[in-house]
Computed example of a mutant assay.
Amino acid sequence: MAAERSSTHAHRALITLRQRILNGELPGGTRLYEVALAEALGISRTPVRAALSRLAEEALLDRNAGGGFIVRSFAVADVVDTIELRGVLEGTAARLAAERGAPPELLAETGAILRGIDTLFQIETIDMEGYSHLNSRFHDLLARMSQSEVLIREIARIIALPFASPSAFLDDQSRQTDLVKTLAAAQDQHRAVIEAITHREGSRAESLAREHARAARRNVEFLLSREATPKDGAPSLAILSA
């Protein structure tokens, strides 16, 4: 029970802090400390520490040599470019997987993950933490299907950049209906990519994987546009890449 409560607190701290960074409440250069944040959020230091470490992995925070963390500064153009670059690399991975023939065990594991994601859409409120976990596993397997250590390493490098992770999005309950539609469309793209790989259609697999990443880019550009309204989730960057 205690472990489950700590996990829930850590997730809440992660979502809260990520949103504050993305909407500018915690601008670049801001120093963050576990004790102060734990007091502000009304939870213990342990889940705050876990949340800060996760945000550092997402490249939203830098570890301060003197202790604590510092919010990183980033430009919108950098966000768009990193998503575009991830699409190029994953597109190449998908093409190589199709041309070389993806290992059967990886295809089987991917199928199980897609079925797992399907079950998440069968409940009234989607489990975003569960989706994030399965989605990240899918993209990891996609990279591994390329059977290229160089490509696997470079994809791991790019997803460490701000917002380039396939699951770098916000759990914004106010946009639940739109969110489910977006994730369902992403799931259809997942299946199309794997289908192309299975049928050894290299060019099609590459094109589909790149388009999959572009959906995240378009979402970021819309949320930062003048056309976006508060109900759309702006000014937060709900990066919905699967």
Rank of each mutant, 00 (worst) to 15 (best):
L179N: 10
I197G: 01
G91T: 04
L141D: 09
P230V: 04
G87S: 10
I21C: 12
L134T: 02
A186Y: 11
R210F: 07
E25T: 13
L114P: 07
G66L: 09
V48P: 09
I117M: 14
A93D: 06
K231V: 03
K181W: 10
L120W: 08
L161D: 06
L170Y: 06
Q176M: 14
M1S: 00
L141K: 13
Q189F: 14
R226T: 05
M145F: 07
Y33S: 02
H190Y: 15
F121S: 05
S148P: 12
T30A: 07
I155K: 05
I159F: 07
F74C: 06
A185G: 08
A102M: 02
L32P: 02
A156E: 12
A184N: 14
R45F: 11
Q122T: 13
Q189H: 15
E129I: 15
K231S: 02
R191I: 08
A3E: 08
A160D: 07
G202K: 05
V150H: 14
L89N: 02
F222A: 01
E154P: 12
A98C: 04
P162T: 04
A209H: 01
G91Y: 03
S73Q: 10
A56C: 12
E211R: 03
I123N: 12
D188F: 13
S236K: 00
S44C: 05
G87R: 03
Q147G: 06
Y33G: 15
A215T: 00
S207P: 01
E201Q: 15
I70V: 14
R5H: 01
R210I: 00
R200Q: 08
M1I: 00
V48F: 09
A59C: 13
E25W: 04
V180H: 11
A75Q: 07
T30V: 11
D62M: 02
A216P: 02
D127I: 08
A192W: 05
G67S: 04
P166E: 13
V71C: 00
E211L: 11
G233N: 01
A65I: 05
A108E: 15
V150F: 10
I43A: 10
E154Y: 13
G130D: 05
S174G: 12
S6F: 09
S241V: 05
R72E: 04
V180F: 09
A65P: 03
P166V: 14
A94C: 07
G67W: 06
A93T: 05
G29P: 05
S6I: 15
R204A: 10
A75F: 07
T198M: 06
L223M: 00
A65F: 07
P104S: 08
L107T: 06
A13K: 04
H212F: 01
V150D: 10
R214E: 11
L106Y: 12
A209F: 02
I126C: 06
P235T: 02
R95T: 03
H199T: 01
R217L: 00
H9L: 08
H9T: 03
S167H: 13
S7W: 01
A234G: 00
V80A: 12
A94Q: 02
N219H: 10
A2H: 11
A216C: 08
L240Q: 00
L96V: 02
R137C: 01
L22W: 13
S146C: 05
S207R: 13
A168K: 10
L55I: 09
L37P: 10
I83Y: 02
V71L: 01
E206C: 02
A2P: 00
P166M: 13
T46Y: 13
I15L: 03
S7N: 03
L183K: 13
L224W: 00
S146W: 01
T125H: 12
R100G: 10
L134A: 06
